[in-house]
Nucleic acid binder design. Structure first.
Lengths: 181, 181
DNA sequence: CGCTGGTTTCACAAATTTATGAAGTTAAGG
DNA sequence: CCTTAACTTCATAAATTTGTGAAACCAGCG
């Protein structure tokens, strides 16, 4: 059956602002789902495939950052096939990993540790590709042409950016572990 | 975000080939165009609309970073309509500006100063949007829930990233002017 | 072995995105 | 004013991307 295992609503009073307290199962529909969809939309806008974005967002909003195919399928009202495809992509780009719960034939898809970290590293890759293409183009155009100048500067910028980005990530690690972990 | 993670060493591949000197008109076809298309493909892969990417790449590879609609249309073998749309988009996101040469009815589209700078700032915008959506979601989910925890951390990461990114850009400015300008 | 729950693959339908020709605008130049 | 070069808008055709149902797979379990 499809009863959402592991999604026991946690009750929390004393919540911030105007949270009256109770968390009902309907909360998913009224509160979580809108967020998931909005976030997915943002990601899509930013270039990620739609379904992958939805799955990713859904995991992000789930209690323990992990859901089974069936759960995703239900929450997103999407076919298992669609989930399968999205999940394959996300695993490919290292945003999630798939885990086989021993004793059960269902699989759990869970957010990679430090997802955002990974995501930024990924961005780093596309920067690298752009940089390489420009570097090659520089060879074709000749570094002495006006266009070549511009390209050269761009290449420099990208290299600079990549170095800096790496350091930013290092700094984040420091920042992070410095406060609670 | 779209591509995978992992840390590809930022290797500079093959040095630019020998530049024999002459530049013929056919050079555009044989040398420039392939670069333009490849670069556009990279940008498309990274999420930019195809035609916009082509126009942008074309401008980047042009001698003075500026071309008329007709020139773009010819070099890209695309209809004026397509160019028009692409150009509108690029202006929208502040990557190019349009200039009306007084006395001529044609318009010139030129790369914005410090394009890459702008581009990164733009990326910053999408980061901001994601951050905001997450922040809102945090309100809905409650910061005391497991998902809320995760979200909160993500928001922090994004804020950190944005601050750092700003500084990186400042540093680039310094770096840049420190060497020649 | 042979089911059976669970996931993946495949062919195809639906939705979206792109690009185009043609008609519509706008303003320079007579 | 009227012409006309140049850009834009619009409806539509073409290409791509998405998502789905149904069939194929693949272990575990009895």
């Amino acid at each position: 059956m499809t009863e959402a295992a592991g999604h026991t609503p946690h009750h929390h009073e004393g919540a911030p602002a105007e949270d009256t307290g109770e968390r009902t199962p309907q909360d998913y529909e009224t509160r979580v789902s809108p967020f998931v969809e909005q976030f997915a939309a943002d990601l899509t806008e930013a270039g990620m495939q739609r379904m992958a974005a939805r799955v990713f967002a859904c995991l992000l909003a789930s209690d323990d950052g992990a859901l089974t195919s069936a759960e995703l399928s239900e929450r997103l009202r999407a076919s298992p096939a669609a989930v399968s495809g999205a999940v394959r992509y996300l695993a490919q780009v290292n945003l999630i990993s798939r885990r086989r719960d021993p004793g059960s034939r269902r699989e759990r898809y869970l957010l990679h540790q430090e997802v955002w970290f990974t995501a930024v590293a990924g961005r780093d890759n596309v920067l690298g590709r752009l940089r390489n293409t420009m570097h090659t183009g520089l060879g074709e155009l000749g570094p002495d042409t006006p266009a070549g100048q511009r390209l050269g500067e761009a290449v420099e910028f990208f290299e600079f950016l990549q170095r800096e980005l790496d350091q930013v990530l290092v700094r984040w690690r420091a920042h992070r572990s410095g406060r609670s972990r």
